[in-house]
Design a binder for these strands. Structure first.
Lengths: 209, 209
DNA sequence: ATTATCTATAGATCTATAGATAATGC
DNA sequence: ATTATCTATAGATCTATAGATAATGC
């Protein structure tokens, strides 16, 4: 359904020469920033081009249209988040839980990415809209990985038998997501890092064997 | 800073005759729906006018511009939420906490309003943007009311002495906010009502005396 | 007589394309 | 020779206003 990232066979435009690759990276960085500040719909190609110091037609040489650009931004941030949170998601023991306590801090350290995620998810809530499936899938995947972690920890005897992994996963994700909004709308006075540590502390009390 | 809701002295246009008042209400309802589906920036006056069965110029007789329309929508939803959650916020004892457990259910019962809140908050995250202060203020107010509830319950001896009201308030709001997104992006498979009850159950265990 | 709505349109975007030009790599 | 970028512009919006007309209330 979502097209545009991988072209035919010859490598995508803007990736063949160093100059092009560099410009492409600048475009992605600028897009991430403006989409995070003003949303996908609130950012025009002209605004973005000006931010980068290029014309909008120049920009469209690199990405065939605005949607393809957003897709590329999302693919890039996905890769980053994957490497950042890598091991923390796919196994679980007492140490991993401790690392979950730092997820709030991780988000605070990249405010642009945090705002981007909040805004892009919200702008694509509508069923059937172009990126809706993408965001639904991302939630599903993330939640499933957490659930598997909880189950693994339970089988390893690190966690108790009588808790509901899906419930805990949904709650943990909700906490993290909700904190983003509150952090962004309180000039940072509500600390994601702090509240997340508090939350995970109590989660440990609930589920550790 | 935000203008447009209250006009000069003669009552606002569209409120003087029954026909006008009815149309005005239809506009607000349509705006709520479309803003919730496609965002403020994603909704054009023409789209909205068509939804209602009027022309965009006709619409602008009732609200001088798009911002004034959003402001009116927000004022209306504020009033509704205030009456709905009325007593539940300004005192706290064991019963009130039980009513907090139903906040998830309350949000599930009005999906349009829930999506509207998520989308409008996200679209106005940027410091200095037209409605940013409005959303910041709303969070601040809500959080303060909860903190006061917690403190009142503590002084009444219903709650323990050794918990942090601000932390619990921030966490409770984050949970509710995060659940909205997860609920909306899971076709309702993650139930706000259910997870919120679970959360409040454990909160009670933490803070009840 | 006043209030509500419409037609028509200005003027400012916005996305995207065509075709020309400049920069790079062989 | 190929890749990257620009100029110019089409065509589709978008918000908002001016001025005309229709509906309502006295």
């Amino acid at each position: 359904m979502i097209e545009g990232s991988r072209e035919g066979h010859p490598s995508a435009p803007g990736t063949r020469q160093p100059r092009g690759r560099k410009r492409r990276a600048e475009i992605l960085k600028g897009a991430r920033k403006l989409f995070a500040q003003r949303g996908f719909r609130g950012t025009s190609l002209a605004m973005l081009a000006e931010e980068i110091g290029i014309t909008d037609a120049g920009l469209l040489y690199h990405f065939p249209n605005k949607s393809a650009l957003l897709l590329a931004v999302l693919e890039e941030t996905d890769r980053e988040q994957e490497t950042r949170m890598a091991g923390d998601l796919d196994t679980a023991d007492a140490n991993y839980i401790a690392s979950w306590a730092e997820f709030g801090k991780v988000l605070e350290d990249d405010p642009v990415l945090t705002a981007l995620d909040v805004l892009m998810s919200a702008e694509h809530l509508e069923a059937g809209s172009e990126f809706n499936e993408y965001f639904k899938g991302r939630y599903e995947t993330f939640r499933k990985r957490l659930v598997r972690s909880f189950e693994a920890g339970r089988q390893a005897g690190v966690f108790r038998q009588d808790f509901d992994p899906l419930m805990e996963a949904a709650l943990m994700i909700a906490t993290l997501d909700g904190l983003r909004l509150q952090w962004l709308l309180s000039d940072g006075r509500i600390s994601m890092a702090e509240v997340m540590r508090y939350f995970i502390g109590h989660m440990q009390a609930r589920i550790l064997a």
